[in-house]
Amino acid sequence: MNNHEQVAKNHWYRNADIPGVPGPERDLVGYGETLPKVVWNEDGAKVAVNIVVNYEEGSELTFAMGDGCNDGMYELPFDVEGQRDLAKESMYEYGSRAGIWRMFRTFDRLEVPATIFGAAVALERNPEVVERMKSRGDDLVGHGYRWIDHYHYSREEERELIALALESFKEMGLKTSGWYCREMSTNTRELLVENGNFLFDSDYYGDDLPFWTRMNGKDHLVVPYSLVTNDCRYIMGTGFGSPSDFVDYCARALDQLLLDVEHDGCGRMLSIGIHPRITGHPARIHALAEFISYAKAQEGVVFMRRTDIATTFAQQVPPPKHSRF
């Protein structure tokens, strides 16, 4: 037996996933070179840009709500332990008090639609935001009952969290056919299909285009999201040092997608993820407006709601046929 064969016999050395591990099967191939042909409107738009507002403020983990900790993802790398962190709370409150309204004004001025990734409790605590969403016609993608990591919860608990969110949305007069967790679990997608109220989820970062999956004998659409063209990079890890970095990054992403379409004729989508407590600040919203203006000036670009991207794709690219044998 040679050295390679000896190594291959060790239990940790594998060239495939272990059968029966919970969660969806990995797909490392995707579309490959054979991309589906999709255009986004009657004018033949090449790239659909989706502005995603993550509305979470008021549903994050806090001592004030009895969680025994204070959430992260805010401006400073400090943490107050064992008690409320009023500084952190106020940074979140900036998003719901000021940031979201600056966003709505910017979207109105530039005449672009938005998608709200909304946590139910956050929306419950600010009814005026809900009414503004309705009057603007922005679509809702469920972002959980609260802004909490779903992988912390059992299958039964997660099923209840999804149901609670849907009931809350219904009571507020909101509808959704899409879902995006803070952090999904290995059960999330299966539970969404089991629930039966969802056309798609966005708990995936591995592609530039929607694609169909098969879950428990049912077709289910995935509309990928992005943490690359996302304002979380202002405050997390190596990312944007200034608002100009955000503009440059998003503009270059759009330019490349347009080049991709020129090469193969297949439409693309671009998700721009923002948060009221982050991009809602003046300098950063100015950068977002600059990118929107740039994108609107490019031929073949259309701004779309995520639900419309999902339905447009589904109309042009139906689920693959599955053999009974």
Rank of each mutant, 00 (worst) to 15 (best):
H275A: 05
A165M: 15
N2H: 01
I148P: 00
N216M: 05
L35Y: 11
Y180L: 15
S168Q: 08
L209E: 05
E75D: 14
R125A: 01
D248T: 12
E93W: 00
E299R: 15
T279I: 13
K46T: 01
H150G: 11
K321Y: 01
E194M: 03
T62Q: 04
A289L: 08
S90W: 06
G72A: 07
E89Y: 01
F104C: 12
W40K: 06
D207I: 02
S271D: 13
A295C: 08
Y225E: 13
L161P: 00
Y92D: 12
Q256L: 08
T62F: 00
V39M: 02
H4V: 13
D201A: 04
I292W: 10
L192T: 11
V193D: 11
E93I: 00
F303Y: 07
L166T: 02
E111T: 04
A16Q: 14
A314S: 14
I100R: 10
A64T: 09
D67M: 10
L221V: 05
S96G: 01
Y13D: 00
G241S: 11
V112Q: 13
G68S: 06
Y225P: 04
E111I: 03
H263E: 11
A48G: 03
L227F: 12
L254W: 10
R132N: 07
F303I: 09
F117G: 01
P19L: 02
M184L: 06
G32F: 08
E131H: 12
V261H: 15
R146A: 03
R97S: 02
L110K: 13
R189Y: 00
T186L: 01
F303T: 09
M236C: 06
E57H: 07
D219F: 02
G241A: 11
L86T: 03
S242W: 03
E57M: 09
F211G: 08
L227Q: 15
N54G: 01
M269Q: 15
M65V: 04
W212P: 07
W40C: 05
Q83F: 02
P276M: 14
D207E: 14
D79P: 00
K37V: 11
K9M: 11
L161Y: 05
D231S: 10
A287L: 08
Y225A: 14
F246L: 14
N2M: 00
F313E: 14
H286P: 00
M1D: 07
N70Y: 03
V121M: 02
S59V: 09
I100H: 07
D201F: 03
L258D: 05
W101V: 09
G265Y: 03
S135W: 03
G241D: 10
E60P: 05
M1Q: 04
N41G: 07
P243D: 05
R125K: 15
M133R: 12
D201V: 01
C69W: 06
G72T: 06
H150V: 01
D27F: 02
R105N: 14
T238I: 08
G265M: 08
F246V: 04
R324E: 13
A287W: 12
E56L: 03
G99W: 08
A8V: 01
M215F: 02
R233D: 10
E183K: 13
L123G: 03
R125E: 09
H263N: 08
I18Q: 10
K296M: 09
L164D: 09
R306P: 02
G144D: 04
Y55V: 06
